[in-house]
Nucleic acid binder design. Sequence first.
DNA 1: TTCATTGGATAGTGCTACTCTCCGTTTGTC
DNA 2: GACAAACGGAGAGTAGCACTATCCAATGAA
Lengths: 205, 205
Amino acid sequence: MRIAELARRGGVPVGTVKYYLREGLLPPGELTAATQAQYGDSHVQRLRLVRALLGPGGLSIAAIRDVLAAIDDPTTSVHDALGAAHHALPTADADPRTEDWAEARDHVRRWGWTVEDDSPNLSLLAGALHALRTAHFDTSDRLLDRYADAAAVLAEEDVATVPTTSMTEAVRHVVIGTLLLEPVLLALRRLAHENASMKRFTPPP
Amino acid sequence: MRIAELARRGGVPVGTVKYYLREGLLPPGELTAATQAQYGDSHVQRLRLVRALLGPGGLSIAAIRDVLAAIDDPTTSVHDALGAAHHALPTADADPRTEDWAEARDHVRRWGWTVEDDSPNLSLLAGALHALRTAHFDTSDRLLDRYADAAAVLAEEDVATVPTTSMTEAVRHVVIGTLLLEPVLLALRRLAHENASMKRFTPPP
DNA sequence: TTCATTGGATAGTGCTACTCTCCGTTTGTC
DNA sequence: GACAAACGGAGAGTAGCACTATCCAATGAA
C-alpha cells in the first residue's frame, strides 16, 4: 500500500505519517521508484502502536523512539526492555532531594523488593511522595503498604503472563503491558472511587 | 510576607508567582499600598498545592483552576468535589466509539459498581481499552477483574479514611488523595514490575 | 494528456507554561 | 533626604512539542 492508505488505516492524516517517518517512529517504506514507496501490514501495526503510546500511554515522541528501539533491538532481553520502557517514560524533571529518595528506597526495602539502586522509578516514587507531603497530605505506612500490596499482586500477574514463545513477542508484551495498562488501572481506580464515594456520601433514594 | 518570600517558600521564581496570580490560581494578597501587598501562610500552602498538582499530579493550569474552585466553594459536597476533580482531569481528547464505551460500561456493571452514566471515567476506561486493542494486546476478563479488584480495595480504603471533622477538610482530602496518590500507585506498580521481572528473568548470581 | 498523488524537505501553526521587560511606586539604607 | 533595590501589575515574548501547510519534481491512473 502507499502512504494514503497507511494513513487511513492508522486513522491519522497523511502529513502525520510523514512526520512519524521523519522522526524515525516508522521505518521507511520500500522504494519502488524515486517518488514511490510500498508499506506493509507491519507499518500499520507500528503506526497504531505509536498512536496508542502517544495518546493513552502519555509518552512523548522522543520517549516512543526509545521504546521502539528497545523493542526492535534483537539483543534486548525482556528485563532490559522493561528497563528501557521505564527509562523512556516522563521522569520527574528535577531529581528529588536525597531525603525523599532515601525514604522511597527504605519503603521498597521494607517490602523486600529488589530494584536497581538508581532506578528512575525510585525517583518517581520519591517525587510522588514529596508532592503529597508538600500538599500536606499524610501518608501512613499502612496506606502505602496497601498500595504496595496491590501493585505487587498486579505486577506478579503481569509478569507471569509474559509469552515465552519468542523473545520479540515477550519484549513487546512487557513494554505494551507496562505502559498501556497504566491508564486502565487509573481509570478503574477513579471509577472505584466514584462507586465508593456514591455509597458512602449519598443516601440511597 | 511579600511576593519574593512567597516565591522563595514555594520554590518558584517570582515571575511564576505573578503568573499564577494573574491566572487566578492564587488569591491576590492584601494591598497595603498601591504597589504593596501582603501574603500569608495560606498563600504558601496554596502555592505548594498548585506545584504538586502541576508536577506529579499532571494537571494543566486550567484543570487546577477548576479543582481549586471546587475545593474553595463551601457548598461543594464531598461527592461533588470528587466529581469536579475527575472532570478537571485530562480526558481522552476524542470521545471513544460507542462500542468501546459500551464495553467499559458492561465491565463496570459486571463488577456491580454504581457510577454516573456519563462519567468521564467511563470514557477514560473505554479509551484505555481501545488503545490496548489497537496495539494488539489481549485483555482477558480475568486480568481486568484482577485490576478492578485491586482498584476497589484501594478506593474503599481511600474513601474510608476521609476525615469527617470539617467539610472543607474532607473535600481537600478527597481531591488531593484522588489526584496525588495516582503517581504513587504508578510508581509502585513499576517498581513491583522491576522486582518481579528481576526475579523471573534474571538468574540469581 | 492531464491531473491528482507520491516521497521528501522546509517552514509555519497553535498551544501551554512560563519568562522578560517595562512602568510608576514604595521601601530600606546610608 | 537621596537613591538603588524591590514591589505589584500588565503585555509581549519564548521554548518546546506535535503536528500541519506548502512546495518540488516524479509518478500513476483516467
